[in-house]
Write a protein that binds this DNA or RNA. Sequence first.
DNA 1: GTGGTTTCGCTACGAGTCGTAGCGTAATGG
DNA 2: CCATTACGCTACGACTCGTAGCGAAACCAC
Lengths: 225, 225
Amino acid sequence: MQSRTPTPRASGRPRSAEADAAILAATREALVELGWSKLTLGDVATRAGVAKTTLYRRWAGKNELVVDAVAELFDELRLPDRGSLAADIEGVVLQFAAILDRPEAKSGLMAAIAESTRDDALRERIRDSIVDRQKCLVLEGRARAQRRGELAPEPDPTESARTADLIFDVVAGAVVHRTLVSGRPADAEWVRAFTALLLGGLGADAGGRPQDDGPAGGAPLTASS
Amino acid sequence: MQSRTPTPRASGRPRSAEADAAILAATREALVELGWSKLTLGDVATRAGVAKTTLYRRWAGKNELVVDAVAELFDELRLPDRGSLAADIEGVVLQFAAILDRPEAKSGLMAAIAESTRDDALRERIRDSIVDRQKCLVLEGRARAQRRGELAPEPDPTESARTADLIFDVVAGAVVHRTLVSGRPADAEWVRAFTALLLGGLGADAGGRPQDDGPAGGAPLTASS
DNA sequence: GTGGTTTCGCTACGAGTCGTAGCGTAATGG
DNA sequence: CCATTACGCTACGACTCGTAGCGAAACCAC
């Protein structure tokens, strides 16, 4: 999952799985305390209780290590069936926002994406371990909505994939931008307004109510501004 | 604009404005060739033809320098009146996408945002020199659409500001995510589909036509995939 | 001109990090 | 028992960082 399979290993001492977990946990810990730029592999090794050389034997560099460490945060993303498209969107967006609100995700993920603009292999790694997993949720939620009759079925698979990509960029991008660039929390109130905008567009009433009345329950309005 | 006014300077040798321009240009050049992580201030100084100490006298560190260098790229953002809300959105989004497509913007801006999660002063700097300038375009375009009658006027200023923030996060976030994370160009075809989604929502036909027929004129479809 | 002030270019420096090599040891399979 | 692989540890040259110190240059006020 994390380090690429080095060889079809036949015999010899196996790599310690505990060391892997300790290293990834230490990486997240260092991300929280130091951030991306001040994070050093030597410090991570010390925190994890392993030798620095062990790190370099498993990961090519800081980029790959941080991607793997952050990717584990997104494993908990689920898409429970809440009965309506609006409720499903709100649920998964709130989960996504909660993960992105963690300091290790903020600094680590964004820096890794920045580095991936000049490293195709890193971009591939991010896509495989993080992005594609999120995109599956979009496909699943869209299929559910189509089964419910909330969305018109899309027979053309090419057009369907294009639309799914678009939705994914809009949803993930909006949450990321809200959390990291605007620096404000994607709380229940924001998620509700965003869902309304996504479903109804700018022409509809984007302020108050989605198409059914109480999707997110009685969540308290945490006034941000 | 870039370096904070150090003192209410009275007399003495003035700072070379040409050096400022040369340093920022050299920073962008180094961002293109080296990316964020391998960019060193010593290298930038050499490229700009100034001493390394001059850099440290004007900027606190790599973060601030890169933010100022990238901010200049966004100065060219304009919002020409194209006659309809859909056309206005498509126009400004295409401009934004063109800037983000530059390699110096990709690596520099994202890395700076990543660092800003642990540096409030840097976040403020990014907001002042980059983000707020983009948000003004949202406000302007929205006001135009309300004057045209395409959008319902929003009397409550608090709610209006909230909605503008939401729109801004959705638009900017979607373009950034498309360009950097998905790694695909936000070309005319994508922008058209995005505009349709933004205006009509998921319930409407998000594939082909916005609410008026030909918003972007006869722009050729640059088939990407 | 003269003096005061600030900037600039240059050199040098200690501190810290990088990524690797080398060595002996531990853990597995045949 | 032996081959193979992973591990911990040390040490190393190379590089970057950010700063200090110096003399020279550019500007203003007088």
